[in-house]
Design a protein around this nucleic acid. Structure first.
Length: 148
DNA sequence: TTTCTAACA
DNA sequence: TGTTAGTA
């Protein structure tokens, strides 16, 4: 076992595609709305072969669900799209940061803690973070030589 | 059966 | 946006 599959599976999420009827049921958005949003360029869909029927990938599904959520909150379609775009950018930034900031999870003092890399420039200790039962974020600095 | 486009309510 | 018509 080389551990390559510890975090990522070989599954290709781009092969997870949904037709308009499925998206409609899953996101509670009518097919008419989906075609309209598509026409306006608010969402992206690909065409499936010669049938020319629309197919949506998983990210699109999440995007559609987000727009629908804002619509239910009372926003106009245009505003809902804007909110969704902003949120996606925020999530992208957070994801990019976390991808580089998280070095793994280690059990310290019997509790799973996230290794956030070196705490100091001299690289004498690591910064760990974890969540309490009350969902409070807590940080700890642990000398590299000592306890572990 | 499902989806598509176009058009009218 | 909902619906309906006529297709592929």
């Amino acid at each position: 076992m080389n551990g390559k599959h510890e975090f990522f599976t070989p599954i290709d999420i781009h092969k997870l595609i949904f037709r308009i009827g499925e998206v409609s049921k899953i996101c509670n958005v009518s097919a008419r709305q989906l075609r309209y949003w598509d026409q306006k360029g608010f969402i992206a869909s690909k065409r499936h072969g010669e049938s020319s029927s629309r197919v949506y990938d998983f990210p699109s599904l999440l995007r559609i669900g987000s727009i629908k959520g804002y619509l239910d909150d009372g926003y106009t379609l245009k505003a809902a799209v804007k909110m969704t775009n902003d949120k996606q950018e925020t999530i992208r930034n957070i994801h990019r940061f976390l991808t580089h900031a998280v070095y793994g999870v280690e059990r310290i003092d019997g509790r799973p803690m996230i290794n956030l890399g070196y705490f100091d420039q001299a690289k004498t200790s690591y910064l760990y973070g974890y969540l309490t039962e009350d969902e409070e974020t807590v940080y700890r600095v642990v000398p590299i030589n000592d306890a572990k």
